[in-house]
């Protein structure tokens, strides 16, 4: 099991960060190797919302299955894994706090690549590095997207 912790100051209000987090359709723009997302029920994040996420590992299509576990408006957002996808274990917890100059965001990712899903052809260390890279880029993208302004 691997744990990645990141922290960033977003120069935007907690509402702006929350808006990006609550819209699941931003997911392909947050993780570089995520291609698309389907959510049930459709629409904004709610506790219990099931997410099926298409991604790539090199030239291969993969699938991840997650579920929204907890929402505390403008404070905490938690997503966990569901069985059957590329990650045997997955947890993503984001904590927001308003600070001078914006919003401090702390993220903790915990994951384990599924050996059963990929089979013996794949190098698990390479896959693990790929997941870590996605999670490192996630926080940079979350900052960029949250700092975009509306037209008008």
């Amino acid at each position: 099991m691997r744990t990645v912790r990141e922290s960033v100051l977003v120069q935007a209000t907690p509402e702006s960060v929350w808006e990006v987090l609550m819209d699941p359709y931003y997911t392909p723009k947050l993780y570089p190797d995520i291609l698309n997302i389907m959510v049930d029920p459709p629409g904004r994040a709610v506790v219990g919302q099931k997410r099926t996420v298409g991604g790539k590992a090199g030239k291969r299509l993969i699938e991840l299955r997650t579920v929204v576990l907890d929402l505390v408006p403008l404070q905490k957002f938690e997503v966990g894994g569901r069985p059957g996808g590329a990650l045997e274990e997955f947890s993503e917890v984001l904590e927001l706090s308003q600070v001078k100059g914006g919003t401090q965001v702390k993220i903790t990712f915990v994951f384990k690549v599924s050996e059963d899903y990929f089979g013996p052809e794949f190098d698990l260390f390479t896959l693990e590095q790929m997941v870590v890279r996605n999670q490192e880029v996630y926080i940079k993208n979350l900052k960029e997207l949250s700092e975009l302004r509306k037209v008008g």
Binding site: L35, K56, K59, R60, L61, I62, Y117, F118, G119, E121
Partner: peptide
Amino acid sequence: LSELLPLP
């Protein structure tokens, strides 16, 4: 996107 392959 179209040239990505499914897992064996």
